[in-house]
Design a protein around this nucleic acid. Structure first.
Lengths: 130, 130
DNA sequence: ACTAAATATGCGCATATACTCATATAATTA
DNA sequence: TAATTATATGAGTATATGCGCATATTTAGT
């Protein structure tokens, strides 16, 4: 492949990254996950409990948010802890996150999620009766 | 339908509006259209020329942005002029628009669109050889 | 009123998305 | 090392999306 072709790809990548981000943020499940993670870092099973959703659904959507650069993941023993890396993320991503947070202010679905989050415990999916 | 059921629907509407907005902003064509309209209000045929896309594609995506509350449309003679209503739109929408604008700064695809916009004329689709 | 022009939209197709179910992978503990 | 636990992921399915093509709708001009 020619140098030129590579350049064209690089130029298109910025746009692709942006649409990827916006796509990640255009789904209700993922907006709810993001909002919960703005409250506190969580493992998959805590997200399951807060949103009252299945394990695979939680895991897959966390992966999409991570892939879009909105979350970071670290292992902590048996768990993988997801968090919003407010400082480390690209500036345009943190702008979006701030806008989303504001847009979700007072939202009732979110309120319920945050309520359930309070009683969520770091216990595996197998012990979450869902 | 009971009052309760209506309340539940109303509570869910805020979330639905947000995902609708984000969805509208998660497509490359629509991000490009929005960016062009931040430069100057346009009729459909000017958007066609700036982005070098078909008439139905321009019209449909303008409609989606409009439906999401991001654009307003007014008739001007034979034309329908679309614009970003920066003052009139919901606050969370204008936050998103600002973030998008910043994210697209220096983007090459956008640069080409804006270049073509300069030479775009308000002449109907039938006279745009595409 | 008739014709032309500008925009919107129904339809069909190809592709993308989101979910569940079942299973694979990776780390912990006995 | 074997069993258990936490998370990721492949497969299948139902639905949503984006596009082009053709056509409908609405306005302008004669």
């Amino acid at each position: 492949m020619s140098i030129c072709a590579y350049l064209v790809i690089a130029l298109k990548e910025a746009m692709r990254n942006l649409t990827k981000t916006m796509n990640a943020l255009s789904d209700e499940t993922r907006l709810r996950i993001l909002r919960v993670l703005l409250e506190k870092e969580c493992c998959v099973c805590e997200i399951m409990q807060a949103l009252d959703i299945s394990q695979s659904r939680a895991s897959r959507n966390l992966g999409i948010l991570r892939e879009a650069g909105l979350l970071r993941a670290r292992r902590d023993g048996a768990w993988i802890v997801y968090s919003v890396d407010k400082e480390g993320m690209q500036e345009y991503l943190s702008d979006m996150v701030k806008a989303i947070r504001k847009a979700l202010e007072g939202n009732q679905v979110v309120a319920l999620d945050l309520e359930r989050l309070k009683t969520a415990v770091r216990v595996g999916p197998s012990r979450v009766n869902h």
